[in-house]
Write a protein that binds this DNA or RNA. Sequence first.
DNA 1: TTCCAGGGGTAGA
DNA 2: TCTACCCATGGA
Length: 300
Amino acid sequence: MPSITEFTIETPHPYCFASVTDHGWVALAPCSWDVETGTLQRVERLADGQAVRLDMGENNEDSLRIEVESVDPLNADHMAEIRAKVWHMLKLDEDLSDFYALAEDHATIGPMVRAGRGRLLRSPTLFEDVVKTICTTNITWSQTKTMVARLVDTLGTPYPANLTLRAFPTAQQVADANPVLFDKAIRMGYRNQYVQNLARSIVDDGFQLEALDDRNLEPAALRKALKSIQGVGDYAANTLMMIVGHYGHLAIDSEFRAQVRARYFDGAETVSDREMAAVYADWGDWQYLAYWFDQGESGM
DNA sequence: TTCCAGGGGTAGA
DNA sequence: TCTACCCATGGA
């Protein structure tokens, strides 16, 4: 029988836990969102290899309640690891006060920031976020969801109390996987090579991907390093910059083009990316979030 | 069938 | 720096 351990995490002000649903990541395995309870679920593999099930939700206006379901007993180190991962995923450490001040009186974005939105969900590791971002390129969103689900179902560590639930695979698990599994079961198309090569570069060549997950790195250098990853171009690099906490670049994709064209160019087909990007230039270091919340409640 | 999606790599100019 | 072409997958 699994046992349940609970703890709480203090939240910033203002803060809205439903912010996690502002980013599509909430719909990508192993994450899921329970609309009824307003909670975020996820199976997480801990450093010692055991998989636990997390259930995150609002506790009160000042804190979140995190429920950890585990088959093996959890010690203080386990709990510290889980707390750090949750803190990281929810971006509770980021200072958005400059963006909030800039956006306060904006017709569309103002209400969003006053409600405490803006902390877009990310993953515990940059590896997971790079893989997921690669899985959003040149493909429909529904296919992104099924591809990521197949990757998790095929390679992730199962949660012992419910073997249908799995954690996101580690770089080691991806590197060790038989390529036939990618071709026959995971089916990411030409992205198979990108994802496996990334995992191998981490495991075999010592590529320190997680060291790039540092907001203190100079943004241009970080962007260059991200773009050196096979399968990561301008769109993916800027998405990952946002993940790490730099919001000064727009991730221009077909969704961005459609939204901005409709909102600011009367649906004109001939508008260039440069012209569309100029719409948000005044937001400077906060362009990504400005675009994101300029869509209002529809969001993602 | 053909097109194309929350693009990226490569070659050639 | 810009453009053209190719790329696996699977839904429309």
